[in-house]
């Protein structure tokens, strides 16, 4: 197997507080292959955004990486000095945030922001950088890019602004783009356009994408593989089609049943009782056990590791531990 572009091993993120240390990410491991789109889903507080922030070295204090490793193309990046990390960020890993209004500086024109980013990372003259910036805007579907590049962010609509942000993320030809809820602030009709632009622009440049979202529909249409997070732990990871159509982890299958769809005719939605535990009250054993309808003794006692299920699928659930079935049943 070739070296994955990004490899995250046993990542642990902790927040020390006065009342003890909260573990927000607990031994999360996954890989992203070159040119792959990995979707990362979960409900609020599951640790999706935190995973992205930890990879790119933008954890906000007092949050810190308390364990694990992050490798980018065989090079470890979680222990780089801030100076070296800054060269990775933007150059090798691009970032698209949720709210395009806050991720652009309102006091500078789009041209100034794009040219600054390009010249920070690439050795280009002002003129070449501008030419490149116009090309980027054109690529993300901004009409009359050569004229509009001198506008300020407030001249653009929400969807257009998010296109500018994508252009910024791609400015230095990064190998990986981390997109954190890139369409959540947008209307449905615009959301579809932005997802297309993001996907095509990245495929064209051979960049991998880590797409963080709470919207399973967006994942279904965009990602190659999907990782499901629950209470800071990986519940399930596998090819999109498998996970969406035949989820194995009880949390994932509950989640899929809870989403109303346009085609379904069922009268009631599947309901998972309760809600995700707070970080200071994660139960012993499997974090999902109090809400799980298949729960048994072992779930309350031991925490399940990711169990390989073939076809690139992994599930963290004792139901799928073959050895156990023979022993206990």
């Amino acid at each position: 197997m070739p070296t994955p572009l990004l490899s995250v091993r046993d990542l642990v993120v902790e927040f020390p507080t006065r009342r003890g240390t909260l573990r927000a990410l607990d031994h999360v491991s996954f890989d992203i292959a070159e040119g792959e789109v990995l979707g990362m889903v979960g409900e609020s507080g599951a640790g999706k955004s935190l995973t992205g922030a930890a990879i790119i070295g933008l954890l906000e204090a007092p949050g810190r990486i308390a364990g694990g490793e992050v490798w980018l193309k065989g090079e470890r990046i979680d222990n780089l000095s801030p100076e070296k990390m800054r060269r990775v960020r933007g150059r090798r890993i691009g970032m698209v945030f949720q709210d395009p209004l806050t991720s652009l500086n309102p006091l500078y024109t789009v041209a100034e922001q794009l040219i600054e980013t390009i010249r920070t990372h690439l050795d280009l003259s002002e003129k070449d950088a501008r030419k490149r910036a116009v090309g980027l805007l054109d690529r993300v579907g901004i009409p009359a890019a050569a004229r509009r590049i001198d506008d300020y962010p407030h001249h653009f609509s929400g969807g257009m602004r998010q296109r500018v942000v994508i252009a910024l993320a791609l400015a230095a030809e990064p190998e990986l783009v981390i997109a954190d809820e890139p369409t959540t602030a947008l209307d449905v009709s615009v959301q579809a356009q932005i997802i297309d632009v993001l996907k095509e622009a990245c495929i064209e440049r051979g960049a991998s994408v880590m797409l963080i979202t709470h919207d399973m529909g967006v994942i279904a249409e965009t990602a190659d593989r999907v990782a499901v997070l629950y209470a800071g732990r990986m519940a399930e990871i596998g090819p999109v089609r498998d996970v969406i159509q035949a989820a194995e982890h009880p949390y994932t299958s509950g989640l899929m049943g809870a989403i109303p769809t346009l085609t379904q005719t069922a009268d009631r939605l599947t309901q998972i009782p309760g809600s995700m535990p707070r970080l200071n009250a994660i139960p012993q054993g499997c974090a999902f056990n109090p809400r799980c309808k298949h729960v048994f003794d072992r779930c309350r006692r031991d925490r399940p590791e990711l169990i390989a299920r073939g076809g690139g699928r992994h599930v963290a659930c004792w139901l799928f531990d073959g050895a156990m079935e023979k022993a206990d049943v």
């Binding site: 009709s189 615009v190 959301q191 579809a192 297309d196 529909g217 279904a220 249409e221 089609r241 769809t261």
Partner: peptide, 16 residues
């Protein structure tokens, strides 16, 4: 057409 398709039916979407 703009609603993402969870059923993965491969339905053709008219670009919005």
């Amino acid at each position: 057409d703009a609603v993402p398709d969870l059923a993965l039916s491969g339905r053709r979407r008219t670009p919005v």
